[in-house]
Amino acid sequence: MNYFKYYKSIILICLCSLVMANVQAQNEWEVTTEQDKNLSPFMFDDEMVLEGKISYENSCTSCHGMPGQADYTPMAPPPGDPGSNQFQLQNDGALFHKIKLGRGAMPKFEDVFADDETWNIIAYIRSFNENYKQPIPDLGGVEIPKYDLKLAFDENVDKLVVKVFSKEIPQPEVEVSAFVKGTFGKLLLGKIQTNELGIAYLDVDPKLPGDAEGKLHIMVKATKGYALAKLNQKMKIVQPTIRKSAIEGRHIWSTDKMAPIWLKVSFFITIFGVWAVLFFIVFGFRNIKKAGREDDVMIE
């Protein structure tokens, strides 16, 4: 009897603590003002949205579903739809902080994503909000520079040379990333900062197959703070490759329409030859028989 009482109280305590935990979980998820005011060091663009989409689909969809579809996993507390007002009315800094540190069932992604990757995810989430305008911090009168990019290829060392200018002044310490565009994605050539002359050198494998003219589709992106420049250019870098059709000059079909002429000719020659020999023999026999009859007539 006594034991039973104990059990009862234990169960009661457990239940109470569960309720408490739930209440705790439904409390406001507070972030400090400093964290809330944290702004993205990059301007959100299509590329960031695309990268963010990939990260989101790999790490967030399982609980939050597709943004805007409200198809999140039913949990207590509900994970919520990042396309909804519940998320979109928050500041970028708050979202950044919450993704980074997590709470309760929401894991912390601090060790999973680098800061720029987290900003990519926020860029993706914000792409579902048409009214969103990215806040830019007060730069104290400093103008965001406009970069001009110039590409060249140094054949002697097989390096892509990227020169970054702003109003014809070389820009040092600009983050330059270069890619080769493929059919379904882009191959990263490298990520490097420009030197004091505003030049970045990136390795290109000369064995990379180009198109019929030996050109590669190079995509270059230069960023520093809020300044961003992109350039797409086809450059003659590698040896031209001849792209052969997988079926050219081949006859892997069994239909006569597709058969090569030599096969048709030799086939018909063989068939006619066999028939010719047969007829020759038959005629020969006939002639022998005929000759035999003539002999009989002559004897008579």
């Binding site: 990939i54 790999n58 080769v180 493929g182 059919t183 379904f184 994605g185 882009k186 191959l187 990263l188 494998d205 990379l208 197959p209 490759t241 792209r243």
Partner: peptide, 19 residues
């Protein structure tokens, strides 16, 4: 998945392109 003429293939999940 990719094009062997380009010698590039792209991963369907991570979208990373490799040789």
């Amino acid at each position: 998945f990719g094009d062997s003429n380009e010698d590039l293939v792209t991963n369907g999940t991570t979208k990373k392109t490799v040789r």
